[in-house]
Every structure is written in C-alpha cells, then in structure tokens.
Amino acid sequence: MKKKTLILILPLLALPFLSYSQLSAYFNYNDVYIGKNTCIGIDFPINSKFHIKTGLKIHINDLRNDNEISAFRNRFYAESFLQNFGAELEFNYTLWEKEGFSRLYVFNTNQISYSQTRSTDDIYIGLFMGDSAYVFQEIITDKVLALEHYFGLGLEVELTNRLNIDVKAGYGIAHFYSGKVAILPEDKVRFDYMISFGLKYKFK
C-alpha cells in the first residue's frame, strides 16, 4: 500500500519542477566502458543552473576482437531484444554560460545495463616456430548487471533557438554484478573514460 502511494505521489512532486522548467528532449551517442549506445530522454532544469536528465539507453551491438582479454570492456552484447535497453540518469550543473550562445557544465552520468556479453578472444598457448601462437575463442556469458558512473565536463552550444549541440567527456567507474557469472575480483570494478555527443531540442 505504502509503495503504491509513493508511486502515485512521486510524479505529483515532480509537477512543480516541470511546470516551471523548460523541458527538452535529447538524443546522445555515447562511448562508455561496456560498449557504445544511443540514448533518448528528457532534460529538465530544476533551476537556472541545475539540470536532471533521464532517458532510455539503447545498446549498439559490436562484436569485438582485440587482444585486451577484457571481461567486460566493449564486450556487452544484447542476445535478446530486451537486453538492448538500459537507463540513464544525469545530473549537471552550469559552470559558465553565455546567454544565447553556449553553456559549460560539470556532469555526473549514470547508466544501468543488464545484458549478456560476447567476445572473440585469442588465448595464448605458447610459441610456434618462433612466433606467439593463440587459440581463437568466442565467449558468451550469462546476463551481467553493469552500473557505470562518470564525472566530467560538457559543452552545450545553441544551433537554433530550439536545437542545441551537446558534447561531453568524462572519467568514471564501472562495476558489475551477477549471480550466475563468476566475476574475478579485478573485473568487478573498472575505471575508464566516456565520450558523448548529441542534440537537444527545447519544447518551449
């Protein structure tokens, strides 16, 4: 009962913010630790400096073959339709703004993904006639939960009165949870950069 009441109240609490704020829709392309994705969402400013963005993340499948022997870096691969989707929540704060031109901000972006991983790795087996020999192996794991948190700097530039270009880059932490996949301790937490660029459309 309490839970249902809370679910009903929460959107009502958000209404005052929405009524005063200039809502925007955004579309971003992101390169993060687990791979590449696009994100579609809503940006609403809480006040003149502080913005909250929330959106639906769509993973881009890209089968990697490199010699990083990484468990999760660029390895997330949606094996079913639902695994393509995740969520994004971002908080950003304006550091500097030139009215009508651009806005420089610091951000904290959080992404959640729940998907299988797939990779093609080359396992070293020794020397063969003086060269390093590798066995080629495709590895598919069960579903893994990935939580990523990045902090960085972004720049939003006004293309028209309603359309903005948004570019940002940052550094952060990715951590992984799974009941079925045995994750090595060193793979549970990883640090990496993220870059992102996209467009933002103001509704009013």
């Binding site: 010699n67 080359d122 087996i125 063969f128 006639m129 060269d131 590798y134 066995v135 080629f136």
Partner: peptide, 13 residues
C-alpha cells in the same frame, strides 16, 4: 591461422 600435427587449430600473432 594454422593447425598443429594433431589437427588442433591455432592462430599465430
């Protein structure tokens, strides 16, 4: 790509 005497597939970097 290569195979050893037992038919085992391997790759040489």
């Amino acid at each position: 790509k290569g195979w050893d005497d037992n038919g085992f597939l391997f790759y040489t970097l």
